[in-house]
Design a protein around this nucleic acid. Structure first.
Lengths: 200, 200
DNA sequence: GTCTATAGATTGATAGAC
DNA sequence: GTCTATCAATCTATAGAC
């Protein structure tokens, strides 16, 4: 019995986080009311406060788990691709033009990023900063592999290159959202090739 | 007399826009109340509605005039610099680490960008899109100059390269705000050199 | 065009039953 | 832990005087 109650609690938490991700991606953090979130989760705002104590806390919890799912998928897509261009194309598609339902994932990521870097939100910024550090480590490892394979001749050490690559992808996605036709797959691949010092 | 009344009106409009830029950069668009904005402008919320009819309209007006001032300054800094590295460093400093009081300019730009690209805000997105198109044209012209001088060997035609450069700078700035130590001037210059296919 | 005053709606959060 | 009910604060926007 304690099992099922606990399971119910875990599910409520997950439902609220999922709902928050959707509503925030659509309306922004301040535009996402606790009522809208709990309604979509088919729970009440009372349960939201039981789980997270405050709206800010809910957003911070979202910050921690937001990206991992999609990041994993992108990694496997890249690993499956053969040759540098195919891998860069996989990176582009995974990041900038992902298929549904992941399309909104980076929208959410941007909302969180902008929110967390507001002068006031110190806790959130530190939290997000840690998660991006982990992200950089993953990219660093991938770049090291590519360099070892002789695919690229990086203009910077892999660990300095990683944040630049992430930053470039973030910027490309944001530009692409504003201006879908300005940057396409072919242009992105060429730009990434130059950035990484492609050899072939 | 009509002169001075008109002048007062023009000044009110400017004061409201300036105040909106400051408050939005700090608290985001939804977090910036019309009262906070009009207080900082030393006007009342009534005058705000007299000028802009709605809060959204005020933000859209801000969208149109936001960037020009700083863009001009950056252009002149770049023109003054000698050699490719100095120009890229000027670009980095103007964009990512501008001196006060321009520090908040890109914060505002990001708030507007995220807001305008929400699924609902069609008008705002189109408006901002136009402004970025103008921006791309400026960057295109600069890249053409650099290519003509033999400083760079671009991996893409200048007009396709321009949005990529802007996107990269936007991403770098966002990353830098989250993580000031992750990317420094030296790394940014090296990365931009690679991206542009620097020859020297 | 700008002010004062206020309407009308919505928000984040709390109290207490179960 | 989740619910119902509700409060106090805040917000956008409007009305009418000047």
């Amino acid at each position: 019995m304690a099992r099922t109650l606990q399971a119910r609690s875990v599910e409520t938490r997950a439902r609220l986080l999922d709902a928050a991700a959707v509503v925030i991606a659509q309306h922004g953090i301040e535009g996402a009311s606790v009522d809208a979130i709990s309604d979509l989760a088919e729970r009440t705002s009372g349960s939201l406060y039981g789980q997270f104590a405050s709206k800010d806390n809910l957003v911070i919890a979202l910050l921690d788990r937001a990206k991992d799912l999609v990041a994993d998928r992108i990694s496997s897509d890249i690993a499956a691709a053969e040759g540098l261009d195919a891998r860069l194309a996989a990176l582009w598609h995974g990041f900038v033009e992902p298929p549904e339902p992941a399309r909104d994932w980076l929208r959410l990521e941007h909302e969180l990023l902008v929110w967390a870097t507001r002068p006031g939100n110190v806790t959130a910024r530190q939290r997000l900063s840690l998660r991006y550090l982990a992200e950089y480590r993953l990219v660093t490892a991938t770049l090291e592999d590519w360099a070892a394979e002789g695919l690229v001749d990086l203009p910077l050490p892999p660990e300095e290159m990683a944040p630049v690559v992430v930053a470039t992808l973030i910027g490309l996605e944001m530009t692409h959202r504003l201006h879908p036709k300005a940057v396409g797959e072919a242009a992105a691949v060429q730009a990434l090739r130059a950035l990484l010092g492609a050899r072939e």
